[in-house]
Each structure stands twice: as structure tokens, then as C-alpha cells.
Design a protein around this nucleic acid. Structure first.
Length: 671
DNA sequence: GAGCACTGC
């Protein structure tokens, strides 16, 4: 590997300790600065990035430090791959040797040679389970820490803990500049001493804060003068005025979801038709994740000369996909966000205002190729005074069942006392502990049970699905159950339904099983295999080929995990009773019963007597069997059960006697 | 007779 690193003594960059307005380093000095810090005193470095633009130089600097491996995490698979290959290229080495990466399903490393390893934060968490002190790494860098995903937050909490046991471990936390100060506070404060009584507490090591300019071009921000009442209409008129008044360059619009996007496209098309001058120049394209792959790819095709591309997108273009050629951004100021109410145990997807950090990220999308402009559909006064600086961490608005089992597996016994970057609501924690207790994954002392608890934690899925897989072993239907598990863990195996609703319903009928959606999935999977995993077959049956390929991949991973756990891979050869009992063993808590004399298909959940209905996408819609269990609830004007299966109520008490005996007054659970 | 922000293991 070429030694192209900083030589000590050549340049000494300034370390910033003030929050705003301090000296900022241009991106090409990253490496110099980090090396300097590593050489001097700091064991933790917070890198605040202003503007957009990624650096690849930090890990190279880290490598020069010790000789042991440096790990660099990213929250997304694509980012891991891109950064890894860019670094390999810059260092002039082969990807997979000195520089490598690991993401789910893909390990491009050579343990004997790899010195810089890129991975998703989820993969690093799995590694901590086998190596709690991460002894093979001397430097760990966490990128995009300001996004505050559950994995990143768990990782930050664990790294802080690991650093107390391994004082020589160096951490580099890369975050948006607005978050740098609070990250630094988190790493220097001991939880026991936090709060009003901590006078006189002196941190042992103060993280160094470093502020760095990104690579992006300058983006000029425009605000509306008066608040807008209808952001879809405001979007359309803004796009039209950019098109009329501004020089060439593509436009990227951020709206909240498919409905908004379709409405905006329709309006824009109508307006464009009214004026031939406009319609000849605009190419309007939607972008969201459930859009079929071929249509998604259209946004990446180069814009023909004399035309202007307008991409109307969800948040997917904020971080996950990067469009080249965008010069103008229109920001509605809203996005859809998940919120979880631990009291009612209901998750809700709602349109909510974005944070300043998101607004800056969106604006940065306009400055990738040359200086750009961002049009914010809210007032400057609102941005300055009312917009919150960062979003609510995912941890505080999600179900925590998977998170809790993972912490238990990592040996964190006192979950409520864990040192989080942001504490989750205690009610959500207690809910999660209850669920895990009822599954038999945790015992009376809230410790993982053996073997079920430890095995469930090994399976990289929701614990209810893991339990279903474990139960399939005794019932002799593991092959069928891991197929169901793989399909339940992706969004949908059908093509998106708009416009082809009737055809889609007919296609579904060809596979429909009286037992419900889970057994229907088995029929679909069988058909797919018999077709030779054919994409034409998928197309003909209104199934999403990409999704089915993913199912195959997940299924393979689950098979390997199952074998490692000693589960016998066995087919029940059509005995659907066994399959349904295994599903019940994981999902007994989601049982509901048709209301007597109900004319509209109203069910009540066994657990909370909530009013619920079978979702119209289910094969059991309008069939309304007396007893069902469901995979999840979606809440709109009503609560709908998605992925529904018929059961015999006697299986419930069989699967979880304790849970149903104590339904009205659950035993308090030891924390 | 409905509705799907986005990741990840």
C-alpha cells in the first residue's frame, strides 16, 4: 500500500473548540487534521460537516495510526459500497484486499489483508455480539451520526461503554455541524453525573470538535414571504416559475408521499398542456421506493439538450439516492415520519415538519454539480425560530422489541439505565419487555432464556418471527416457515396496485388459500420456483420480481442461521396445520375475534379489545373467519389487519398459556 | 373495497 499519508510536523491544523463561526477546514485537509489529532491527545474526535459532500480521507488517516484495522460505519448499504470503492481507488489498492466492506449478504474483505473496513452500523452491532470489545479494531468511525437511527444510537452508547474498557480505542464521530456539540457532550459526560448535581465533575477526556467544509457548491436559499396553505400547489407554481426564469438545470422537488407526488404531477401536466411552450421543455418524473424499478431508473437518464428534468420525490432522494445534474431544489418542508404510541401500541405514519438538519441536507442536493438554488416553501422566520434543529431520534418514535432483544444479547442487563444518546420512552421499553417475556425470550428476571432467548437473538428478524421459526423445528415445518418469514420481512411481493387493481386481484386469487395470506405466500413461492424463478412469470402474475429475488436471498441467510442454531430443515409436505401452529407460536399476541352479529366485519383484538378490520388486500377480506391472527396493523381511518391467517382459538392457550391466563392483569415484569 | 416515508440485520 502506498504511503501517501501526512508527515508529522508538516502542517498543524487548528482544532475548533467553539461551536459556530470558528475556523473551518477545507475538505482536503481532513486527513491532515485527523492525523494531527490522533497523534496528539484526542481519543474521540467529533467531525462536524457543513454543507454536503463526502470525504474519503478520514479512514485513510486512521489507518496510518496503529496497524490494526479501522472500521467505518454508514447507515446504508449503498453508501458502504460507494465509499469503500472510492477509498480503494484513491489508495490505489484492490477492493476486498487492504480496503474492503461488509454488508448483509456480501462480505468483500480479506481478514489477512484488510486494514480499512467499511460496514453498515447493523453489521457492526452483530459483530459486537461475538466480540464485545471489538478488539480487532483500533479506530472506529461512525458516519452520519446525526441521522440518529436506532442502530447508530445503540452503537454510540456501546462505543462509549467499550471505550471505558479500552481507553486506547479511538472514535471518530462524523455528524452534521449542528449536532457536533451534543455528540461531544454525550461522549464526555458520565451518565451517573449528568443533571443538576454534577458541579465539580471534570471529564477526563474532552472530545475534540473539528469542523470541516463539505465538497458541495454554494446553494442560495429562497424563502416564501407568506406561509403557503397548499404545498402541492405551491410546488407546482414554483417549478413553473423556475422553468420560465432560470437557466438550464434539473429540478428536484421534495414532497411527502405517493399521493402528493401524483397530485403534483397531474397539476403540473395540466398547467404545462395549457402552455405549449412549457410542455415542450419539461420532463416530469416521480420517485419513491415502491415505484417499479424500470420507472425509478428513468430519473438517472441524462436530460436531453434543451429539456429540463423535474423529479418529484419523497425522502428517498434526501439520503438514499443521489441525482446528478440537479441545480434547483424545491423543499415543501414536510416528510412522512413514523410515530409509535406505546400506550395504545399503535404505529402511525404521519406528515410532519422536517428539521433544520433535513432542510440543509435537501438544499445541499442542489449544489453537487455547480452553484444552485433552493426554494423553501416556508418563511425564513419559521426556519429560524420554529423549525427544530434536529429530528426526533428514531429510538423515541418506534417499537423497541428488536432493539431490546439485541441489547440483551449484547449483555446489557439494565436496559432502562443504559447510557443512550437519547433515552427512549420508558413505556415503550416496558412494552417491549412484556412482548419478549410473553414470547418466552426473557425470563422473570428479564434475562435471555436458554436456549430460546439466545437463539431468537441470533436470528436477524423481528423476535415474533424468530419465535415462529424456532417453533417450526418441533412442528416439522421449518422449510415452509422460513419462506413465510422471508416474505413477511419485505414490503410486498406484489406490484404496486394503482391502475392494475383488477388484474392484481385476479392474480392473487390464483394463489389464494382458505387458511389466509401466509399459506397463500407458500403457494406463490412454490409457483415462482416451478417457473424457474422467471421474471416473465412474475410479470404475468403481477408480482414484483425484485422483491422475489430478495426473498430468495433472505431465505438463504435464514437457512444458514437455522442450521447454525441446530434447527432441522424439514418440510411438512403440505401439512398446513403444522405451519399455522408455528405462525401462532410467534404471533399469538396478535389474535382477534370477529364480533358476534357484526355486519361489517368488525373484529376485536384479544389483547386490548381494539376495534380492527381485515385489510382489503388480504385474501380473507370479506371472508371474515371467526378467529384470526395478523402480522401487523396499519392505521388510517380504521385499524386494518395486514397478512391475516385463520386459527383455532385453542392454539392460543396452547402456544402461550401464561399470556392468555393473565390477559387482563399482566404480571409486573422484573426490570 | 385501500393505501404503501425510509433504512437495516
Amino acid at each position: 500500500m502506498p504511503q501517501q499519508f501526512w508527515k508529522p510536523g508538516t502542517e498543524k491544523p487548528r482544532i475548533l473548540e467553539d461551536e459556530e463561526g470558528g475556523v473551518r477546514l477545507p475538505v482536503y485537509k481532513y486527513r491532515t487534521a485527523i492525523l494531527y489529532l490522533v497523534e496528539t491527545h484526542a481519543t474521540t474526535i467529533i467531525v462536524g460537516e457543513t454543507g454536503s459532500g463526502k470525504t474519503t480521507q478520514i479512514p485513510q488517516a486512521g489507518w496510518a495510526d496503529g496497524g490494526r484495522v479501522i472500521a467505518c460505519t454508514q447507515p446504508r448499504r449503498l453508501a458502504v459500497q460507494t465509499v469503500a470503492s472510492r477509498v480503494a481507488e484513491e489508495m490505489d489498492v484492490k477492493l476486498g484486499e487492504e480496503v474492503g466492506y461488509t454488508i448483509r449478504f456480501e462480505d468483500v474483505t480479506n481478514p489477512a489483508a484488510t486494514m480499512i473496513k467499511f460496514l453498515t452500523d447493523g453489521v457492526l452491532l452483530r459483530e459486537i455480539m461475538d466480540d464485545p470489545l471489538l478488539t480487532k479494531y483500533s479506530v472506529i468511525m461512525v458516519d452520519e451520526a446525526h441521522e440518529r437511527s436506532i442502530s447508530t444510537d445503540i452503537l454510540l452508547g456501546l462505543l462509549k461503554k467499550i471505550q471505558r474498557r479500552r481507553p486506547e480505542l479511538r472514535l471518530i464521530i462524523s455528524s452534521a455541524t449542528i449536532e457536533a456539540k451534543s455528540m461531544s457532550d454525550f461522549f464526555q459526560t458520565s451518565k451517573k453525573h449528568r443533571g443538576p448535581e454534577d458541579h465539580g465533575f471534570a471529564p477526563r477526556k474532552v472530545p475534540a470538535i473539528l469542523s470541516v467544509e463539505g465538497r458541495g457548491f454554494n446553494v442560495q436559499i429562497h424563502y416564501v414571504v407568506e406561509p403557503v396553505s397548499d404545498y402541492v400547489r405551491a410546488t407546482v407554481s414554483t417549478v413553473l416559475s423556475i422553468h420560465e426564469q432560470e437557466p438550464a438545470g434539473d429540478i428536484l422537488v421534495f414532497l411527502t408521499g405517493q399521493d402528493d407526488i401524483d397530485a403534483a404531477i397531474q397539476l403540473l401536466t395540466e398547467e404545462a398542456h395549457a402552455s405549449r411552450k412549457i410542455s415542450s421543455g419539461l420532463i416530469v418524473l416521480p420517485l419513491y421506493s415502491s415505484l417499479p424499478r424500470a420507472e425509478q431508473d428513468l430519473v438517472f437518464s441524462p436530460t436531453p439538450r434543451g429539456k429540463r428534468k423535474v423529479v418529484i420525490s419523497t425522502n428517498i432522494a434526501e439520503t438514499s439516492l443521489t441525482l446528478e445534474g440537479v441545480v434547483y431544489v424545491v423543499d415543501s418542508g414536510f416528510s412522512k415520519q413514523q410515530f409509535y404510541n406505546p400506550i395504545s401500541d399503535i404505529e402511525n405514519l404521519v406528515v410532519a415538519p422536517i428539521s433544520k438538519a433535513s432542510a440543509r441536507q435537501r438544499a445541499g442536493r442542489a449544489g453537487r454539480v455547480r452553484p444552485g438554488k433552493c426554494y423553501r416553501l416556508y418563511t425564513e422566520e419559521y426556519f429560524v425560530n420554529e423549525m427544530s434543529s434536529v429530528g426526533i431520534p428514531e429510538m423515541q418514535r418506534s417499537k423497541l422489541v428488536s432493539c431490546v432483544i439485541q441489547l440483551k444479547a449484547l449483555g446489557i442487563d439494565n436496559i432502562l439505565g443504559f447510557d443512550w444518546p437519547a433515552s427512549p420512552p420508558p413505556e415503550a421499553m416496558i412494552r417491549a419487555l412484556e412482548v419478549l417475556y410473553s414470547l418466552g425470550v426473557l425470563d422473570d428476571d428479564a434475562k435471555l432464556t436458554s436456549p430460546v432467548g439466545f437463539q431468537a437473538a441470533e436470528i436477524p428478524l423481528d423476535p415474533m418471527i424468530s419465535k415462529m421459526i424456532l417453533s417450526s423445528n418441533q412442528l416439522g415445518c421449518s422449510e415452509e416457515i422460513i419462506t413465510i418469514a422471508a416474505i413477511l420481512s419485505i414490503q410486498s411481493i406484489w406490484v404496486s396496485g394503482k391502475g392494475v387493481q383488477k388484474e392484481l386481484d385476479e392474480a392473487k386469487l390464483r394463489f389464494a388459500a382458505a387458511e389466509g395470506d401466509h399459506v397463500t405466500f407458500l403457494n406463490v413461492y412454490k409457483g415462482f420456483l416451478q417457473s424457474g424463478k422467471s421474471s416473465q412469470w412474475c410479470h404475468k402474475n403481477y408480482m414484483n420480481y425484485q422483491a422475489m429475488k430478495k426473498v430468495i436471498e433472505i431465505r438463504e441467510q435464514l437457512r444458514r442461521t437455522a442450521l447454525r442454531l441446530g434447527i432441522v430443515l424439514k418440510s411438512c409436505e403440505g401439512d398446513m396445520l403444522a405451519v399455522r401452529k408455528a405462525v401462532t407460536a410467534g404471533f399469538f399476541a396478535n389474535a382477534s375475534r370477529l364480533e358476534a352479529f357484526s355486519h361489517n366485519g368488525m373484529y376485536k383484538t384479544v389483547r386490548g379489545s381494539q376495534e380492527v378490520y381485515i385489510h382489503p388486500s388480504s385474501v380473507l377480506f370479506r371472508v371474515n373467519p371467526k378467529w384470526v391472527i395478523y402480522h401487523s396493523l396499519v392505521s388510517t381511518d380504521r385499524q386494518y389487519m395486514r397478512n391475516v391467517m385463520t386459527i383455532d382459538p385453542s392454539w392460543l392457550t396452547e402456544a402461550a398459556p401464561h399470556f392468555f391466563q393473565n390477559l387482563r392483569r399482566p404480571d409486573p415484569i422484573a426490570l
